[in-house]
């Protein structure tokens, strides 16, 4: 062995990416002051509402009442300024709509995808107070167990879900994609679905389902449009 006694081959740190400023002035010393680095973790920031300029009217606090349409039904709800649409759907209406999932809660994964006035949106990145008078469609509003939307039927047919946690988001994004661009070619479909992540690796079957659904929505049937390879 070249250097069998060296515990970690010199010049290499553990295989993760590690940032360190061990030489030179460190941020830690800077932040902690010179005497002691007694950190105080208090995250008790009072509500982080941006300061409103006078012409914007009074600043929002407490609960606001508003009416919006969810899956075709008018709903009056009470929300805080910080309440996201995702939280509204999952926690503030009864019965809750839990199809949209909270995964990253910051616009990275698409598990919370919904449509607002027919535009795809991340429910976790949308404040509920902004939705007065708007129309929200969730996965629950697309089809039912006995009457699936073509996209849902195609997802079943192609096994485009494994654990299924990303699936409602993918279904909504696929519907939005095909409603907005019925002619989208396969690479455009991938583009339009690139705001959704799946950890189980359903992507190939999601794409196949989207293409089948495209055929169905254009007037075909599942069988006619189905392009599943190698059906034994």
């Amino acid at each position: 062995m070249d250097n069998p006694s060296a515990p970690l081959p010199s010049g290499q740190s553990p295989p993760d990416r590690i940032s360190s400023e061990s030489s030179g002035p460190s941020r830690r010393a800077f932040l902690g002051g010179s005497s002691a680095a007694l950190a105080s973790t208090t995250l008790a920031s009072s509500a982080g509402v941006a300061r409103a300029r006078p012409q914007d009217g009074p600043r929002l606090t407490g609960l606001s009442k508003l009416t919006l349409t969810i899956n075709g039904e008018k709903r009056s709800v009470e929300v805080e300024p910080r309440t996201t649409l995702l939280s509204l759907l999952r926690h503030r209406i009864d019965p809750p709509l839990t199809g949209a999932k909270e995964v990253c809660d910051r616009g990275n994964c698409g598990a919370c995808s919904v449509m607002i006035d027919d535009q795809p949106a991340y429910a976790c990145m949308t404040l509920a107070v902004d939705l007065a008078g708007r129309e929200v469609r969730t996965v629950e509003g697309l089809g039912t167990l006995d009457d699936l939307h073509p996209v849902q039927a195609a997802f079943c047919e192609h096994d485009a879900s494994m654990c299924g946690f990303c699936t409602p988001g993918f279904v909504v994004s696929t519907v939005a994609c095909l409603e907005q661009e019925p002619e989208a070619d396969p690479s455009r479909i991938r583009e339009l679905l690139s705001g959704n992540l799946c950890r189980c690796g359903t992507y190939p079957h999601v794409f196949a389902a989207a293409e089948t659904a495209q055929g169905m929505m254009a007037g075909g049937t599942l069988d006619a449009a189905g392009s599943r390879e190698d059906k034994r």
């Binding site: 709509l97 839990t98 199809g99 949209a100 999932k101 909270e102 969730t138 996965v139 629950e140 697309l142 089809g143 039912t144 167990l145 699936l148 996209v151 849902q152 997802f155 079943c156 047919e157 096994d159 485009a160 879900s161 299924g164 946690f165 699936t167 409602p168 279904v171 599943r228 059906k231 034994r232």
Partner: peptide, 19 residues
């Protein structure tokens, strides 16, 4: 090849997870 029996629950959002 056949679809999984809980596929429609998953695609309609009616599959209930612990969350």
């Amino acid at each position: 090849e056949y679809p999984r029996v809980d596929a429609s629950a998953k695609v309609t959002g009616s599959a209930r997870f612990s969350h």
